[in-house]
Nucleic acid binder design. Structure first.
Length: 876
RNA sequence: GGGCGAUUAGCUCAGCUGGUUCAGAGCACUUGGUUUACACCCAAGGGGUCGGGGGUUCGAACCCCUCAUCGCCCACCA
């Protein structure tokens, strides 16, 4: 049955994905083979596939499929992340839409809603990955809130607490007033914003003097507890030891001195608000100042806000300025650019806030993880990220791991009293009771006396264990699975989460396995649109990957993504690339259609052309195999694809198939055909990681295969020595063919008209491809001659001259002009080469090899000039 | 404010140890083609003082200095 001229991906892709699943090829179990493991960067459980995932997972699938073909026990562990803030925010919004306020719900009820939401929307993204062809071991699918995963998190928390790495601290934290939770420093995004710098006058107690301070947040004056000046500031010597009066609330506050104050900035006077600024807090502690917190959790003012109580800080900012202006204490308002911290998740402006939170000490834990990367035990690709990584790890700050959320692992700290230290940390309530009894000496304490800390842990506190916990290596550190699969091989992820996730996994790896979690970290680029904007749902500039797959096929989209994705560089995604991808897929399809349509004859002999073509292609293939090895080894996946692309499109389709193609309506020799099929099969193997579907389709179409013979589990082509001479001889021959084509075109000689070719064999032109030249150039005969042929069209390849005798078609003047131009160019070239060789310093200092090359160039140019001159003479 | 990186063809990017991979690839573009797989095709062609300037060297896209522009990361300037 004839195959369709246009490849249609739809049915083919579903068919083979089901087939692969049915035969369990993606599943990995511990065996005697060497493992090759990748753990997926778990996407948000309720998320949908975006272009970033697409890139990421295509790369992982390429790596895993190639490893599978190379005979490794390939294991790609999929899963999702509970994404506490993002998911909780979605659930809260959904409840709100249903008229339910989270505050009215109990923790249990809320979690029930959250789970319901998770089950409803969860896992969509994993289904989408299947469309892409991702060959994950779905039996191993994990969720960061699975029971065992959560148990691992709790165990680690307790362990780190007992080792003294986790502490509870009253600290200035980043407060997200929208989500009403703290954020880690990494979750705060600083944006340059236009604000105002307000100059406010404070009265000096017991005098009519005023001093002026500058602030960007005038509402915080209600929380002021001092004014600070630089002791070296000449202007303010008279203020030392005095007191100032805060406008509106009339609080009397001391004027303190500290060299921290920048004399140059603003007025040189600084108001100190310890509750709402990190630096002020430090000053406050140093000078023993009162801490006045004026904000509620939703960033409205509390009772310290007096008549502003209950109003949002930004509303108050406007109103208080008016009031202050009315009092005549605003001396100046300047516009001022400053950085404002916003929440990564909700976009709300962050307020620094003092509160009790849980922290993980990082300095010590980070050390082995830093060393691992610096010593390249863990390799970052591209290497430029090493510096960024080092900088971060050397200046790592303690990690705020508590979140005022319910969706996540609840912190296993149990309070038995109101005191700051009245708590114990334990894996279970029962264990907590025992510990509490021991700690207090009160044997009468029961479970009902204990109250668990309501906060949940930061999501990253579960995902940092991912490479270990997916193999249950926390709960059972010595199990066969983790011992076999860990450390994993490659991690493919976005550079944005190098600190959030990658660095912390390395830390956890050393802390809990004494070993790195992965050997290589491949950091992909950020997918951007043509205007260099990051592709995101909110901007609406991201195409839906599933639509793209529908349009171009998964294979086409995979190729499109990979065509332009050098590691670590951002990639400008254009839909045209997918078009190119599906074009490539179609090309492969049609190459197969050609072969598939041939009539095979056992009687027919192998032609000379076919014999040399097969030998040549095998060499070319082997050479490409070596290049592929190099590219893959350096994670240059797009280069690997491009090398494969050229091998198939140029070498296989444009050259090889043209060479072996039988004549019109002629059968092909069975011997040749068998070899072509073997070559095609090898091609399919190297293509498979990039275009898994069409490669399997063709593979299975060639002949009936048992499930054990599927392409997905075939053996990567074996490396063999290859003939470089043959490859360069072919390149020579291809130039000859191109010369013939040029002449045909220039003289309008149809391909159907046979012509003859004569070679002035100055340079021992290789003859191995003469049959090919004859076939592809439609040459009746090739003659080797010792004297120039008169009255013929000529062209040159290296220093051989070729003649095509065409009577009556030669325009002598045109030929002379052409030759003269070539002569002039060659003479100029010779001059520059000789100039180099005359330079003694070049000859003396350059390596011998380089000089020899120049001498060869000189000799070639000389003989070429001689030849052109002869031709010219004969024409005249 | 500190650090890292980039700047090469219209676009996206290679260019590894300074010299045969040295000015390249893919796409786009122009021109010409219904030769028995593919117009998602075939062939040919145009296009770049390698961001500017200076230096080192026999020799620089590559090393050094400097300027410019862009990007990223980190950081508490009110």
């Amino acid at each position: 049955m004839a195959l369709e001229a246009k490849y249609s991906s739809k049915n083919v892709e579903d068919k083979w994905y089901s087939y692969w699943l049915e035969h369990n090829y993606f599943h990995s179990e511990v065996d005697e083979r060497t493992p090759y493991t990748i753990v997926i960067p778990p996407p948000n459980v309720t998320g949908v596939l975006h272009m970033g995932h697409m890139l990421n997972n295509t790369l992982q699938d390429v790596l895993i499929r190639r490893a599978r073909l190379k005979g490794f026990n390939a294991c790609w562990v999929p899963g999702t992340d509970h994404a506490s803030i993002a998911t909780e925010a979605k659930v809260v919004a959904k409840l709100k839409a249903d008229g339910i306020d989270k505050a009215t719900l109990s923790r249990e009820d809320f979690l029930e809603h959250a789970w319901e939401w998770t089950h409803k929307h969860g896992g969509i993204i994993l289904e989408q990955l299947k469309k892409l062809g991702a060959s994950c071991d779905w039996e191993r699918t994990k969720f960061t809130m699975d029971d065992d995963m959560s148990a691992s998190v709790i165990k680690v928390f307790v362990d780190l607490y007992e080792k003294g790495n986790i502490y509870r601290g009253y600290r200035m934290v980043n407060w997200d007033p929208e989500a009403k939770t703290t954020l880690s420093d990494e979750e705060v995004i600083y944006e340059e914003k236009q604000g105002n710098l307000y100059y406010l006058e404070y009265k000096i107690e017991g005098s009519d003097d005023v001093l002026t301070i500058a602030t960007t947040r005038p509402e915080t004056i209600l929380g002021d507890s001092a004014i600070c000046i630089n002791p070296n500031d000449e202007r303010f010597q008279h203020l030392k030891g005095k007191k100032a009066i805060v406008p509106i609330c009339n609080r009397v506050i001391p004027i303190i001195e500290d060299e921290y104050v920048d004399i140059e900035f603003g007025t040189g006077c600084l108001k100190v608000t310890p509750a709402h600024d990190e630096n002020d807090k430090a000053l406050g502690e140093k000078h023993n100042l009162e801490v006045i917190d004026i904000l509620n959790d939703d960033a409205s003012l509390n009772s310290f806000g007096m008549h502003y109580q209950g109003k949002d800080r930004f509303v108050v900012r406007k109103e208080i300025v008016k009031e202050l202006q009315g009092m005549g204490v605003v001396s100046k308002i300047e516009t001022h650019m400053h950085k404002v911290g916003t929440s990564e998740r909700t976009g709300a402006v962050i307020e620094p806030k003092l509160s009790d939170q849980w922290f993980l000490k990082m300095k010590e834990l980070a050390q082995p993880a830093l060393d691992a990367v610096l010593e390249k035990d863990v390799k970052l690709v591209p290497e430029k990220f090493i510096n960024t990584y080092r900088h971060w790890m050397e200046n790592v700050r303690d990690w705020n791991i508590s979140r005022q959320l319910w969706w996540g692992q609840q912190i296993p700290a149990y309070f038995y009293g109101d005191g700051k230290e009245d708590f114990v940390v334990a894996e279970t309530l029962d264990a907590a009771v025992v510990k509490a009894q021991e700690k207090t000496g009160n044997k009468a304490l029961t479970a009902s006396d204990l109250k668990q800390d309501p906060d949940a842990l930061d999501t990253w506190f579960s995902s940092w264990l991912w490479p270990i916990s997916v193999f249950n290596g926390i709960l059972e550190p010595d199990n066969d699975e983790v011992n076999y699969y860990y450390p994993t091989n490659d991690l493919v992820t976005a550079p944005e989460i190098l600190f959030f996730w990658v660095a912390r996994m390395i830390i956890a790896g050393y802390e809990y396995r004494g070993e790195k979690p992965f050997t290589n970290v491949y950091l992909t680029g950020i997918v951007r649109d043509k205007q260099r904007r990051k592709m995101s749902k909110s901007l609406g500039n991201s195409p839906d990957p599933i639509d793209l797959i529908g349009q171009y096929g998964a294979d086409g989209v995979r190729v499109g993504m990979l065509l332009s994705s050098p590691a670590g560089n951002d990639l400008m995604f254009e839909e045209d690339l997918c078009k190119q991808g599906s074009g490539f897929v179609n090309k492969i399809w049609n190459a197969y259609r050609l072969i598939d349509g041939w009539e095979v004859s056992a009687e027919k002999e192998e032609t000379e052309t076919a014999a040399i073509a097969i030998k040549w292609y095998k060499s070319k293939f082997q050479k490409t195999l070596v290049e592929l090895e190099d590219h893959y080894g350096k994670y240059r996946i797009s280069d690997a694809l491009m090398a494969t692309y050229k091998l198939i499109w140029d070498d296989f389709c444009s050259w090889f198939l043209e060479m072996v193609k039988p004549g019109y309506q002629e059968p092909i020799s069975e011997k040749t055909f068998k070899q072509i099929i073997a070559i095609l099969e090898d091609n399919l193997k190297v293509l498979h990681p990039f275009v898994p579907f069409i490669s399997e389709e063709i593979w299975q179409h060639i002949t009936d295969r048992t499930p054990e013979e599927a392409l997905i589990i075939a053996k990567w082509p074996a490396s063999e020595a290859y003939d470089t001479q043959l490859i360069s001889d072919f390149e020579f021959a291809s130039e000859v063919i191109s010369g013939i084509r040029t002449i045909r075109k220039e003289k309008n000689i149809s391909f159907k008209d046979e012509i003859s070719l004569s070679v002035l064999n100055n340079d021992n032109a290789p003859t191995s491809f003469d049959a090919v030249i004859a076939k592809l150039g439609n040459i009746s005969e090739i003659n080797y001659i010792t004297e120039a042929l008169e009255g013929a069209l000529t062209f040159r390849v290296k220093s051989n001259e070729y003649f095509v005798p065409i009577s009556g078609t030669i325009n002598v003047e045109e030929e002379i002009e052409k030759l003269s131009a070539e002569l002039k160019y060659t003479e100029g070239f010779l001059k520059s080469v000789q100039g180099k060789l005359k330079n003694e310093r070049f000859v003396n200092s350059a390596p011998e090899k380089v000089v020899a090359i120049e001498r060869q160039k000189e000799a070639d140019a000389l003989s070429k000039i001689e030849m052109i001159k002869t031709s010219l003479a004969s024409l005249k």
